[in-house]
């Protein structure tokens, strides 16, 4: 006999289901009067936020190319200087005018999601090397049994992307572009493919 290791198991995930919007974005789903506004639904940017204004837009596609119209997408990102607005950020204090987290439902008619935010700064990897600017994504929907984690990097950061510790460890180079948001002006397009030849890289984080 040995001493028991007394750990609990994480609660098993279950799908967010078709009505995740009732719980997470009720005003969007037409149920008003309970919450003043949907949490995380507004712009991440105010007049005092530091950084370059961008809009991230995209769709989540299923295995036959149909855009999901019932997905919920959350993002989490650093501020313009590479600091997260979180107690676990111990390197410095993040921009008080940048919360860093937001969530958006896909449009009920088209499925498109959009975030008004800023381009994040670089955040160090565990060994101190700088990671290229990136936005963390979490995607849930009916039919997704466990939320999917991915990252969006930026097409206008070729040099930083080339030395990014995460991107550079990906063996199948042909898949790397699935993590790159395509920047045109201030719009960055990032489509997420759940299956198929262009299946997005998802991470076990």
């Amino acid at each position: 006999m040995v001493q028991p290791l007394t750990y609990f198991k994480e609660s098993a995930s279950q799908t967010a289901g078709p009505y995740v919007h009732i719980g997470c974005t009720p005003n969007f789903s037409g149920i008003t009067g309970v919450y003043a506004e949907d949490l995380g639904s507004g712009s991440l940017v105010n007049d005092n936020t530091r950084g370059e204004r961008i809009t991230i837009r995209g769709f989540v596609y299923d295995g036959v190319g149909t855009p999901l119209k019932d997905a919920l997408v959350e993002i989490w990102q650093a501020d313009a200087d590479g600091f997260y607005n979180s107690p676990s950020e111990t390197r410095g204090k993040a921009d008080p005018n940048f919360f860093g987290w937001a969530r958006q439902p896909g449009d009920m008619a088209t499925g498109e999601f959009a975030f008004e935010t800023i381009k994040p700064g670089k955040v160090p990897f565990r060994d101190g090397r700088l990671m290229a600017p990136h936005v963390n994504f979490w995607i849930v929907a009916r039919g997704i049994n466990l939320g999917l984690n991915t990252r969006m990097y930026f097409s206008d950061e070729e040099e930083a992307n080339a030395v990014d510790p995460i991107l550079s460890r990906i063996e199948h180079r042909v898949r790397v572009p699935t993590l790159i948001g395509r920047r045109e002006g201030n719009t960055v397009t990032f489509n997420i493919y759940l299956q198929g030849d262009n299946e997005t890289i998802f991470f076990d984080i």
């Binding site: 799908t15 299923d62 295995g63 036959v64 149909t66 999901l68 929907a141 009916r142 039919g143 997704i144 049994n145 999917l148 995460i166 990906i170 898949r175 759940l194 299956q195 299946e199 997005t200 890289i201 998802f202 991470f203 076990d204 984080i205």
Partner: peptide, 14 residues
């Protein structure tokens, strides 16, 4: 619904 919404490739550990 999971059939067409399930990634088929291995997740990359991070």
């Amino acid at each position: 619904t999971s059939v067409l919404r399930s990634p088929q490739r291995a997740l990359i550990s991070l």
